[in-house]
């Protein structure tokens, strides 16, 4: 910032050579990126298929919503929900030790909490769909593989959010309890836990919203949920069925977001 004589504050303009370098670099990056995209490999039927999908969405296959013999929309969505509920609860329990490991005010050494943060970051980076592929090798292509993948992957994010929550607590109550001779466990139970509980629950619900979205795609690789019938319908070019499944997913996720948002507002 420079002050001119009239007292008007003017932001210093960016140095022009530096700006030029950025623009040239960006231009090169984009030329590189665009040159690598094969534009001639597109199907000529793209327009037709788009129209067919749009038509399918506007005239969905309502009969698919409930079929008495099974494998219908409602059961697929229920399966998706069940996967995300179970996965969220597993991670919410498993990430608590990680959260205390990674929070700075709970350990005496900086490297200890740092290593915890690093660990959570690595878990976060590992995509859930790859985890699901591995669990499928262990327990077979079932919804359970999806549950385990979501449960393990969510530790990364939930652990970090929980750790932030633990770092933000007021040390007063803990110290007061310590002063009257409470053990470490009693401090945890009566001073730390009541403070972090609303935050923990709110973060868990937030992760649940994300997990519902993830659970809809697990079926793509055979780990249960609504993704499997969607992939089948897509490859069979059954557009009305694709339409009804998409509608079902959109409605379910919207409802869950509304409900979870309402509860989270009440919690915090």
């Amino acid at each position: 910032m420079m002050k001119t004589e009239a007292g008007v504050v003017r932001p210093k303009p960016l140095k022009s050579p530096f700006r030029l370098v950025i623009i040239v670099a960006l231009a090169f990056v984009y030329i590189w990126a665009l040159s690598g995209v094969p534009m001639d490999g597109l199907k000529e039927t793209a327009g037709q298929v788009t129209k067919a999908i749009a038509a399918g969405i506007f005239s969905p296959d309502w009969n698919y919503v409930y079929l008495p013999e099974g494998e219908d929309l409602l059961r697929g969505l229920l399966d998706t929900l069940a996967i995300s509920v179970l996965g969220t609860v597993i991670s919410a329990v498993l990430c608590i030790p990680f959260a205390f490991w990674a929070s700075r005010n709970m350990s005496r050494f900086r490297w200890l909490s740092g290593s915890g943060r690093m660990m959570l970051s690595v878990i976060r980076t590992f995509p859930e769909i790859i985890m699901a592929l591995m669990f499928i090798k262990a327990v077979g292509p079932t919804s359970f593989a999806g549950v385990l993948a979501l449960g393990l992957h969510s530790i990364g994010m939930l652990g970090k959010l929980y750790a932030d929550e633990v770092e933000n607590i007021d040390p007063g109550p803990s110290e007061a309890l310590l002063a009257c001779g409470a053990t470490r466990l009693q401090q945890m139970w009566f001073a730390v836990l009541p403070q972090v509980m609303p935050g923990f629950l709110s973060n868990t619900l937030y992760r649940f919203e994300i997990n519902v979205r993830s659970a809809t795609i697990l079926g793509v690789i055979g780990a249960g949920g609504i993704g499997t019938p969607l992939i089948f319908a897509l490859s069979a070019r059954n557009w009305p069925r694709v339409g009804i499944i998409l509608l079902g997913i959109v409605v379910m996720i919207t409802l869950i977001d509304l409900l979870s948002g309402y509860i989270r507002k009440k919690l915090v």
């Binding site: 999908i53 979205r213 993830s214 793509v220 490859s235 070019r237 694709v242 998409l246 959109v250 919207t254």
Partner: peptide
């Protein structure tokens, strides 16, 4: 509401 992998599956079609 639509996750990226789902969008990709549709665009592949």
């Amino acid at each position: 509401t639509l996750p990226d992998l789902l969008l990709a599956a549709i665009f592949v079609a």
